[in-house]
Design a protein around this nucleic acid. Structure first.
Lengths: 166, 166
DNA sequence: GAAGTTACGTCAGCCTTGTTGACTTTCCAA
DNA sequence: TTGGAAAGTCAACAAGGCTGACGTAACTTC
């Protein structure tokens, strides 16, 4: 697949200018990446943090608070606030663990799944358009660079979430 | 919802599962992307917002406040708070415009340039490592997908910042 | 020259989302 | 059985977004 090209050209390639463009591309693209969900959330008293929680609960139903904490990389107090709102509003269901009663297992309710769907539909639509515009080969490169950019621990989490093949 | 309906292989390609992986890759990679500068800023009473200001002032010395506002996409009140701190601490110099005295032109001071360098060295190091690991072809794809993900207006800004060729 | 517009700064107040610290409940192991 | 660790909750604070209102200087237009 990639072939780092022998010696010479892969050097020339990594000018500071090239790297700077990559950095700015990440900055501007991330804004686009979050723009659609943000727009939907705006007005409801929810934000990006709620979106993230919904996403990962949808993805791993029954996950514990601690689990979610590791994935999201925030403090439990911060997550708890977000979760409390979602639970009170009936978007998320929190069930005491059967094995270990200290744990809370999280699930989306009907309404929670509905909002999650709206958010991820919007985000997927943009991603789909970008993938289409760039083409399959570009997408592979995109994923490769992103994976190489993650901290090892994050990458571990990301890959563990795989479950669905490449 | 998903699955378009024509064409051959580009179909299989854009499954919701593929798109979801792309979404999660963006999420985890962005954390890595900001981790090193955040670590440096931590402890100083600065944050990511200060980093962004320093970056774009470094990049376009003499830029006006309004210019920066458009690039960063925040309100002037928000930017002003950040800028005020940087100016008071002697990292940024604000000079009244010669042509139009209403404008303020922004420059990094010696110390400002120093901090900017520390931040962008760290960020570039990670980007360089990721580029090396993924290879030249992947990098091209990476940039293509990111550009396609930007809002048109952001993309315009991003390309206008080019000045250095691809 | 007066009136309107633009660029910038600032005050006040709000919201989301991060933080730390202190606490309870539950589990487990010495 | 007791003491520590782990999971979760409550309280308070800070950063950095936001809106709205206002002031001032400088430019532009009529």
């Amino acid at each position: 697949m990639s072939e780092p090209g022998a010696g010479g050209e892969s050097l020339l390639f990594l000018t500071d200018e090239q790297l700077r463009k990559g950095i700015e591309a990440m900055f501007f693209a991330y804004r686009g990446f979050t723009a659609d969900p943000d727009r939907i959330l705006d007005g409801m008293h929810y934000g990006r943090a709620h979106h993230r929680a919904l996403h990962f609960i949808h993805r791993s139903p029954g996950t514990t608070v601690n689990n979610l904490l590791n994935i999201l990389g925030v403090t439990k107090q911060s997550l708890n606030r977000v979760l409390r709102g979602l639970i009170e509003d009936g978007l998320v269901d929190s069930r005491v663990g059967k094995e270990d009663k200290r744990e809370r297992h999280l699930f989306l309710t009907e309404r929670g799944a509905e909002l999650e769907r709206a958010l991820s539909d919007a985000q997927r639509a943009r991603m789909r358009a970008a993938y289409r515009a760039a083409g399959p080969a570009a997408v592979q490169g995109f994923r490769q660079v992103l994976e190489a950019m993650m901290d090892p621990e994050m990458k571990r989490q990301y890959l563990a979430l795989k479950e669905g093949g490449v």
